[in-house]
Amino acid sequence: TGEEYIAVGDSTAQQVGDLTFKKGEILLVIEKKPDGWWIAKDAKGNEGLVPRTYLEPYS
């Protein structure tokens, strides 16, 4: 379980453990880390770190 967020920009994984996503994708945020990198899952079930500045709450 988690909260749904929509990507407001494209982000390409810079290192192992990062999640690549495109603008408009809905991501499920699993954990919000205080350093600004959140753990999220995409629609295909891929999981990784995403920069919170690229996400907005999805409603």
Rank of each mutant, 00 (worst) to 15 (best):
G45D: 04
I26R: 05
L19A: 01
T20H: 10
T12R: 10
E47V: 15
A43S: 13
I6E: 03
W37H: 09
L55C: 04
Q14K: 11
R52E: 15
G48R: 01
Y54T: 07
G9C: 15
G2F: 13
I30M: 09
K32T: 04
S59C: 12
E25Q: 11
P34T: 11
L28R: 08
A13W: 13
K22F: 09
G9A: 15
G45Q: 03
E56S: 08
W37L: 11
Q14A: 12
Y54C: 14
D42K: 01
A13F: 09
K33H: 11
P34I: 09
T12N: 13
E31N: 10
V8R: 08
A43E: 09
D35C: 08
E31D: 10
E47G: 04
W37F: 13
D35I: 03
E3W: 14
A43N: 10
G9E: 15
I30L: 12
E47T: 14
T53M: 11
D10G: 06
T20M: 10
Y54I: 11
I30S: 04
E31K: 10
E4N: 09
W38P: 01
V50S: 02
I39W: 13
L27G: 00
T12F: 12
G45K: 02
A13S: 14
K22H: 08
L27F: 06
D18W: 15
L19R: 01
A40E: 00
G48Q: 02
A13V: 08
G24A: 03
P57C: 07
E56C: 13
L49I: 08
F21L: 04
S59E: 10
A7N: 01
E25R: 00
S11W: 15
W37R: 10
D42N: 11
I30R: 04
I39E: 03
P57G: 04
I30C: 05
I6C: 06
S59I: 13
D10Y: 05
L55S: 00
G2Y: 14
E25D: 15
G17P: 05
A7M: 05
Y54W: 09
V8L: 13
S11Y: 15
K33E: 03
Y5A: 02
K44G: 09
T53V: 12
I39Q: 05
G9S: 15
T53N: 13
I39C: 04
S11A: 10
K41D: 02
A43Y: 09
A43R: 10
G9M: 15
D42G: 03
T53A: 14
K32H: 04
V50R: 00
L28H: 08
E47F: 13
S11T: 07
W38M: 04
G45M: 03
Q15W: 11
A43M: 11
N46I: 07
P51H: 15
L55G: 00
I30K: 05
L55V: 06
D42T: 05
P34S: 12
G36I: 04
G24I: 02
K41Y: 07
D10N: 09
Y54G: 06
V50A: 05
Q15S: 13
P51V: 07
L19Q: 00
L27R: 00
P57Y: 07
R52G: 15
E4P: 14
T20C: 10
